[in-house]
Simulated scan of single mutants.
Amino acid sequence: MVESTKKQLDPSKIMQTGTAFWASKLLLTATNMELFTILAKKELSGTEIQSRLGLHPRSIYDFLDALVALGF
C-alpha cells in the first residue's frame, strides 16, 4: 500500500504581496490630502475632516478607520 501525503498550499505570501500596496496607498493619500498637517494644528471630528478634505460622507469613516487600524 502506497501512502500519499498531500502538501497543504499556503497562499498567504501571495495575498500579502498582492495587497501590500494598500497600506502605502492609504498613507500616500492621507499625506497628499495634508490630513496629518491639518490634524497637527487642531483636533477635528470625522464630519469636519470630511468637509475640509471634500470626501464623500460614505467613505470618510472607512478612510479614517483604516488609518487608525494601521497605527496612524
Rank of each mutant, 00 (worst) to 15 (best):
M1L: 11
M1P: 04
V2K: 14
V2P: 08
E3V: 12
E3F: 09
E3C: 12
E3Q: 10
K6P: 04
K7P: 01
Q8F: 08
L9M: 07
L9Y: 13
D10N: 15
D10Y: 09
P11F: 14
P11W: 15
P11Q: 13
K13R: 12
I14E: 07
I14L: 10
M15L: 07
Q16F: 15
Q16M: 10
Q16G: 04
T17W: 15
G18Y: 08
G18E: 15
A20N: 09
A20Y: 09
A20F: 06
F21T: 04
F21P: 01
W22V: 05
W22K: 01
A23M: 01
S24I: 05
K25V: 00
L27H: 03
L28C: 04
L28M: 13
T29P: 00
T29S: 00
T29Y: 00
T29A: 01
T29E: 00
A30C: 10
T31Q: 08
T31M: 08
N32S: 03
N32F: 00
N32A: 00
M33P: 01
M33C: 03
F36C: 10
F36G: 08
F36L: 15
T37W: 03
T37Y: 04
T37I: 10
T37C: 06
T37H: 14
T37L: 12
I38E: 09
A40K: 09
K41D: 10
K41Y: 12
K42I: 04
E43T: 11
E43I: 12
S45I: 06
G46S: 12
G46K: 02
E48D: 11
E48F: 08
I49W: 11
I49K: 11
Q50E: 07
S51A: 15
S51C: 04
R52Y: 09
R52Q: 14
R52S: 08
L53I: 03
L53R: 02
L53D: 05
L53K: 00
L53Y: 04
L53C: 06
G54L: 13
G54E: 15
L55P: 01
P57C: 02
R58S: 04
S59F: 06
S59R: 05
I60A: 03
I60N: 02
Y61T: 10
D62Y: 12
D62N: 08
F63N: 02
F63H: 03
F63A: 01
L64A: 06
L64N: 03
D65C: 08
A66Y: 00
L67T: 03
V68M: 10
V68F: 11
A69T: 07
A69L: 13
L70E: 15
F72E: 07
F72Q: 14
